[in-house]
Design a protein around this nucleic acid. Sequence first.
RNA 1: GGGCGAAUAGCUCAGCUGGGAGAGCGUCGGCCUUACAAGCCGAAUGUCACAGGUUCGAUCCCUGUUUCGCCCACCA
Length: 886
Amino acid sequence: MTETLLPKTYEFAATEEKWLGRWRAEHSFAANMTEGRPAFSIVIPPPNVTGVLHMGHALNNTLQDILTRYHRMKGDNTLWLPGTDHAGIATQNVVERQLRTEGKNKNDLGRDAFIERIWQWRREKGGAIVEQLKKLGASCDWQRERFTMDEGLSKAVRQVFVQLYKEGLIYKGDYIVNRCPSCQTALSDDEVEFEERDGKLYYIRYPLADGSGELVVATTRPETMLGDTAVAVHPDDERYRAFVGKEVTLPIAGRAIKVIADTAVELGFGTGALKVTPSHDRNDYEMGKRHNLSFMKVMDDRGFMNENAGEYQGLDRFACREKIVADLRADGFLVKIEDYKHAVGACYRCHTVIEPATSRQWFVAMRVLADEAKAAVEDGRVRLHPKSWRANFFGWMNNIRDWCISRQIWWGHRIPSWDCQDCGERIVEMADPSRCPHCGSAQIVQEEDVLDTWFSSALWPFSTMGWPEKTKELTMFYPTSVLVTSFDILFFWVARMMMMGLHFMGEPPFTDVYLHALVRDKDGRKMSKSLGNGIDPLDVMASYGADAMRFTLTALAAQGREIRLDLERIEGYKHFINKIWNAARFAHMHLADCDEHIREVADNPGQLPMAYRWILSRAEATAEVVRGAYDNFLFNEAAQAGYQFIWTEFCDWYLEWIKADLFSADDEVKATAKGVLLTVLETILHLTHPIIPFVTEEIWSVLPGKRSLLMTAPFPEPRPSWRDAQAEEEMAVVIEAISGLRAIRSENDIHPSAKLTALVLCPGEAKRAVLTANGKRIADLARLESLSIAASGDKPEKSASFVGLGLEIFVPLQGLVDVAAELVKNEKELVRVEEKLAQVRKKLGNDNFLAKAQAEVVAKERDKLAELEARLALLISAGDRLQKMR
RNA sequence: GGGCGAAUAGCUCAGCUGGGAGAGCGUCGGCCUUACAAGCCGAAUGUCACAGGUUCGAUCCCUGUUUCGCCCACCA
């Protein structure tokens, strides 16, 4: 044994910094492209360039890193391709805010200067999230970092747009979008927040044009009635069946509009009759399309009534509502007004009530693309994990609507379409046109809108690898192996990647999709700024270390379950990291001056003493579990198996067991102990490195021998020769004896340092042989002065006892035995055994069970019966003995 | 309203194709035993939400109920 220079407590901060530096210096994350090796590739879900690392990123990237490191160690050609997303609206907002503090807005700069300003921001501040990912230990090939607005990726975007346009899958059409009248911009659905607000429900009379009756409609927005072009009722509504196809006269406006039947009308709600305003309501818009209604806008983009509103023109929408209601009342059209609380869409920035409005937008036709994506999941070319998402996925694909890809902002891929001002020709080509190919006019104007950010993200798996060029990266790494992402962007992103990949590459972009949960706080709430319940991964890494955080997230990442993160849990795993550290520190004391070849003793495990065979067997069993877990995305299982093996089996039992051997005078004994110690410790490092890269790399580096990096060392192949069922059985017997002795000690308040004498009675020959063979070590670990083992014999009076499976332990204690307490314990145990016995007897007494259950199950029950009966007999005799001692 | 998921120890959660209920944290008792007090040893703790069904046998499969969570659609 030598002194160790390793600190007593694991110093994560310095260690992490050290290895981040080394890994970078040695380009250890760079993808290999060796011929003849299997390929493993992941493209990162590109975080917004404006983003800061949150727990969701930490989880997402920890899981990707585990897979990447595992496959790299397995020797695969491994690529984890990183990058960021230009995040149109978010990024533009950041820079606009910056301008505002300078008293300017984007129009003061103009489009080109504003975009240059965003690039400038990106160069200065856009790398933050990437640096944070690096701190986590993410082993991306950082030299291949991509950005969705890169030249290459922009070229791919252009190519895809042009091709889809030429195939007729991109078109320009009318659509109803959310507009904020105050911000003067269209908003995506995600940017609309629904707020419960107090409103009113107005009941308005619409007389039939032929004077034969009337319909009463209910609305929260009477001002839009000026744009009504129909009234709808449910086709099954008996009350109105006769009205369908007739016309009603729109009050105030005096126009005649049709009564239509549509299932979108809710039977039980309001009056069952619904006014239809296709230009100012999303549902009405759909209905207008279905029934070929006319579209009439009565409001402008700022929320004021327009020329179609007649005498109301120029009024603000809310002022108009009041005036209309007053006029309806005066003319006798108003039936009643009810208070009504309902959800109103509001702008996430200024909280102005959203105004749905029709406008010209660009679309991708989705039907064909969606069918291809659906088929890929149906036939198993793409597997979703957990499988439960399949149903959701199909539902979405079946009900898909065309994708509105135009955005009225400046930051993004500007739509490559030019309109000729003279002849109206639309020009969509790879090269920017200078004049109209149809009429030759130079008066051509490019589309102002840019593409939805998700458009470029949808191309990510192949655009990042150089498409449309035929690169060797595409050949080697496309399709990628697995996509790891949060379920909330399954449709926004994953499905669209599948569509684009299938359409342009002919293959889906990945074979497996692992969908993980959202990270929530310990009460199950989403982490959010407004709740203030967020846990900042950077803070966590600073106080607990990256490995502790990674291990925690991994241990909590059970499939199909939400993740509730509690700092206490992270603290617990920090202790675990320290535990590994100290086990290694102990090993280091004994191994520092060794030759690494000592590990060769493990090549022939059959020759080794029982405990050595046992730990190798357990190590191999653990390796099997861990390997299977990594292969099947069962991350929490890998973490749990590692934890259990390292702490309980390796530290608590094995290290304690070999201490005596390590201090032995016999050099051969010593060498064996050291060799197996090194072997098992190395196995532990290999198995857990993907989850906790820093501490394992550090330990690896101080073990004997010249070492290259752990992160590129080979992951253990299966070693079936290590499995040893007999050693596991034998060790179980020894563990039971030692635990029994310790329990006697603890329950009788015997000081741990007091040396005891013990007797073990064990009638079973095999078991007794095991105990005898390991008697010395049992005495050591249970701190005995002497231990006698016999098949049977006199049971010492005045002794504490323990009844185990097939063995009985006695520790004579002159008058110190707490007889009353022992009796209580004995009685309790007796009851438990009797209950179990009753269960087993009932089972074995059941003919059906004997006839129908598997033979092994029946045999197992029989063994159990024998065991329990023996135990019961021992307990009864122990009870009798205790009675005599009173 | 539609869909999905969850309900297991005080708390946070495992328990993967039905066959003796587990971990971490916390609690209680005892220990500075020369890797680790961020540790060691020992102990206590569960009608596996409820009610039925299938089965020789159900925490596990099926049905229903209750509670909770999420997603989608939002009702004029």
